[in-house]
Amino acid sequence: MAANPHGYTFNHTMLRVKDPAKSLEFYCDVLGMTLLRKSDVEAGEFSLYFLGFTDDEDEVPKDEKAAAEYVFSRQGVLELTHNWGTEDEDGPVYHDGNAEPQGFGHIALDLPDLEEAVAHFDRLGVEFQKRPEDGKMRHIAFIKDPDGYWIEILSAKAMAGG
């Protein structure tokens, strides 16, 4: 079979978030992602935040139509969906996928230096689900976002045995 015979692109993964301010602080300030586009859907009472990694924030188009095409033609975009009013609810609002019944597991980020990233997350008080020194898989860690979703952090080089 030909590689990608249809020309498909894996564009984005969506996570529902309780408080967009906390989630944007985590994904942008802690992980270094860029808010590529925000869309408020008044009829549905929700907002969409599209995030991705970019070397230059100026590459993101300012024009709404161009920004939409830019976001929906990229790979590796994270869509955070905020249903208005959830930030006012007590306790967790969404299932993280890792408690019973299990479903969704995690997203993963390749980092240039796992040890340096762990120190960065420690300085910022990020919650770990699994530290590299825990268990047998010492080349990965899992951190949690404000809604309890797991994020695997790894180094592609270490994963390949290098």
Rank of each mutant, 00 (worst) to 15 (best):
D145P: 03
F128C: 07
T9R: 15
E59C: 05
R123A: 11
N11P: 00
S47P: 10
H106W: 06
D29F: 01
D134E: 15
F10Q: 01
A3T: 12
K22M: 08
D29C: 05
L154V: 02
M1L: 06
D113C: 07
K144C: 05
G161H: 15
M159C: 11
V17A: 05
P5G: 11
E115P: 00
L78S: 05
L78I: 09
H139K: 15
Q102E: 12
P132F: 10
E127S: 10
L154N: 11
V77R: 00
L51T: 12
Y70G: 06
H120G: 04
W84S: 04
Y70K: 10
G44T: 03
W150M: 07
E69W: 09
R131V: 02
L109E: 04
C28D: 02
K18D: 00
H12M: 05
V71N: 06
D110L: 00
G148P: 06
P61K: 12
R138F: 00
I143H: 05
D63T: 11
P5K: 08
D56H: 14
A68P: 06
S47L: 03
T13V: 14
K130A: 11
L124S: 06
A160L: 15
A119D: 14
Y149V: 07
E127A: 14
N4K: 08
L15K: 08
V118P: 11
F46V: 06
A67N: 09
D96R: 12
V118C: 15
D29T: 07
I143T: 04
K136N: 01
P146S: 08
T34V: 13
G125Y: 08
G52S: 11
G7V: 07
G52Y: 07
T54Q: 13
A43K: 14
D96V: 03
E115R: 10
D90N: 06
